[in-house]
């Protein structure tokens, strides 16, 4: 419990900043909704003149874009990109900080198994992600409530919002795995940013090229907004894929962390 609480308190400030930033993205974007929907026909015409490839790259679907779900789903792309960075930073940082900060000698010479150290850290990271998403869902709902011109189903909106949580979990697990695989991490950002953006670009390229298989390669494409809006549900095979990735990454993180030699820092 002590390591868990220690990590929560160490990440308190950064969690507050992330929650505030994600809320700001939501509020600013949602505030634009009335402007886009005041004259749907005109806006549709402007967007319709964009080349189709550009629309796909920007994730704009003319049929959904002007509904509250569609508009929210659109901005969600960017929020999720930011959320992925938060989650990957967290996963990489929380596991690698003892080695990077040379505090491994202190922590790992305490009477605690390494397995329990990892569990406490991952539990803290998971808690932080849950807190972030509770705030994110709450702000999403409130923002939608303010700008929506017609009634909307809270279930659909929250299901859309929950994809943030699911994508963050994948990146949290990947972050933990990277933290144990890379011997000396000097800067967490230098690890997480390239990983997140590579996967994001892979996903976007897949969209532009119309290649459906790419969806399996980028967590950003696991949960398709159009599908969720239409079916009010998530695609089972991608939930299974996500679960598999998380289990493998976390299991490998445990094994490597437990076996690793902690060499003298000098």
């Amino acid at each position: 419990m002590n390591v868990f609480l220690r990590e929560l308190s160490a990440y308190r400030k950064s969690t507050i900043i992330w929650c505030a930033s994600l809320s700001a993205i939501l509020i600013v974007f949602m505030a634009l909704y009335p402007a886009f929907t005041s004259d749907v026909a005109a806006t549709k015409q402007v967007l319709g003149q964009f080349p189709e490839a550009l629309r796909t790259a920007l994730n704009i679907s003319l049929s959904d874009f002007f509904t509250i779900y569609g508009f929210y789903g659109y901005l969600l792309n960017f929020a999720i990109l930011a959320g992925a960075i938060q989650a990957m930073n967290l996963g990489t940082g929380i596991i690698s900080k003892e080695v990077a900060g040379k505090t491994a000698d202190f922590l790992l010479s305490k009477p605690m198994t390494r397995g329990r150290v990892v569990s406490a850290k991952l539990a803290a990271a998971f808690t932080i992600i849950v807190i972030t998403n509770v705030v994110f869902c709450g702000v999403s709902y409130l923002a939608a409530l303010m700008v929506a011109t017609e009634t909307f189903a809270i279930g659909t909106l929250l299901l859309l919002a929950s994809t943030m949580f699911l994508v963050q979990l994948v990146f949290l697990a990947l972050g933990a795995l990277f933290a144990v695989l890379i011997p000396k991490i000097k800067s967490v950002i230098a690890v997480s940013m390239p990983a997140v953006f590579t996967l994001y670009i892979v996903g976007t390229l897949g969209d532009v090229l119309g290649n459906d298989k790419v969806r399996y390669m980028s967590p950003f494409k696991f949960y398709d907004t159009a599908y969720i809006i239409k079916n009010v549900g998530l695609e089972g095979k991608f939930i299974a894929l996500e679960a598999a990735i998380i289990i493998v990454a976390i299991a490998a993180s445990y094994v490597i962390y437990i076996k690793k030699d902690v060499r003298a820092s000098a």
Binding site: T103, D105, F106, S109, K110, P111, A266
Partner: peptide
Amino acid sequence: SGPEIRQEVGYLPSEVFYYDD
């Protein structure tokens, strides 16, 4: 039995590093 042993061990390394915050 590492954790059990370390209940009764005190360790001081040559170079000390702690959480700066």
